[in-house]
Write a protein that binds this DNA or RNA. Structure first.
Lengths: 191, 191
DNA sequence: TCCTGCTATGCAACGAGTTGCATACGCAAT
DNA sequence: ATTGCGTATGCAACTCGTTGCATAGCAGGA
């Protein structure tokens, strides 16, 4: 229900085509709200019907034509109204947490490689964030409102990754201890 | 696609009816994987058809009958196989981050009450987690494998809430500064 | 007495989101 | 020549998940 709003924010920050939006959703905005190109095209059509955005067909040479969308006044109004609505309860989907609890009913050691892979991904993302922070916000005191808000969101991403890395180390230590320890009383007698 | 596995873990930890599972998903497991009772009933029927779980009708006095489900051997096998699969990329839905970036195109101050409400929710959840930790894991050195894994997941929740609280304070400070500062160059000339 | 709320399960309709496929052009490599 | 890749948009079919409603008995309060 909020993909519309994420698209609107992205178009306000910079107009673009469905294809370009899809790439943004693979990078910046997509860190906080994922979407496939299919979903984006669908929602763009609906938003255009509703008058939230306007389209301009742009011919390109050497490339297919594209439809460049921009946020329209009704879209801005809708966004302002949305900002004043209560935040919906987030639907949590923390697969790794489920897997860790599941490991109690199987071999905990089997999970270690997956957690390590997961950890590498988060370490890479943290490095990527820190690089982006240095590049886009070198002088935090001279930023305008938009940049300061983008920066505080990025700081959230950075802190999330740091916390996750520390936690994954905790998880790995726990799994390794359980793998090393004698499996005294497997689940057979645990009930 | 992983609701099956979350239910399976919950049933392995403790057999129960659809109704009981729905309540667990409002409390413990639901912190990491949310589900409504409708979704749970649907998936339970499919899991039973697939032989992952077994049912027992239990008559109660003063209450409607209930169907108590337990994990069956094929379910355990499926869970073990799932544990060895690569972790799917999580679909991120971080609505507040979108809203914060959206605030650049409206009045940042309008977001403050919502962020404060959000912050209170996280503070309450952290307190709840800490209380639960003290109650369920008073002696961390004497725990069996299942409890240690539950504990490490809970520690993840605790660290997540701590990090989120600190970040929300950062967000609030930023929003308040923007609200206090002269809105030099509103969005009108920002494009 | 009636109303509300809890336990317990479920149908029907809808909306959100994914997966697979199709089209079409140009460019670069084999 | 043909294969593969990047740009660009879209349909069709499906699954996942939500919302609203229905049923039904019992308990407790106004």
């Amino acid at each position: 229900m909020a993909l519309e709003h994420a698209i609107l924010v992205s178009l306000l920050e910079q107009p673009g085509s469905g294809y370009e939006l899809a790439r943004r959703f693979d990078r910046s905005i997509g860190r906080f709200w994922t979407a496939t190109h299919q979903q984006i095209y669908k929602v763009l059509r609906r938003m255009e019907t509703d008058g939230w955005i306007s389209v301009e067909e742009v011919a390109q040479d050497g490339r297919p034509d594209k439809k460049v969308y921009s946020a329209a006044a009704p879209g801005r109004t809708a966004l302002a109204a949305w900002l004043r609505e209560p935040v919906e309860a987030e639907t949590v989907r923390h697969e790794l947490a489920v897997r860790i609890r599941a490991a109690a009913f199987d071999d905990p050691a089997a999970l270690i490689p997956e957690v390590e892979r997961h950890r590498e991904g988060h370490a890479a993302l943290l490095a990527h964030y820190l690089y982006g922070e240095g590049r886009d916000f070198p002088a935090p005191d001279t930023l305008d409102a938009r940049q300061r808000l983008q920066h505080v969101v990025l700081r959230g991403g950075i802190e999330y990754e740091r916390m996750t890395l520390a936690w994954l180390d905790d998880v790995l230590a726990t799994l390794r201890e359980l793998a090393a320890a004698p499996p005294a009383g497997t689940e057979a007698d645990a009930d």
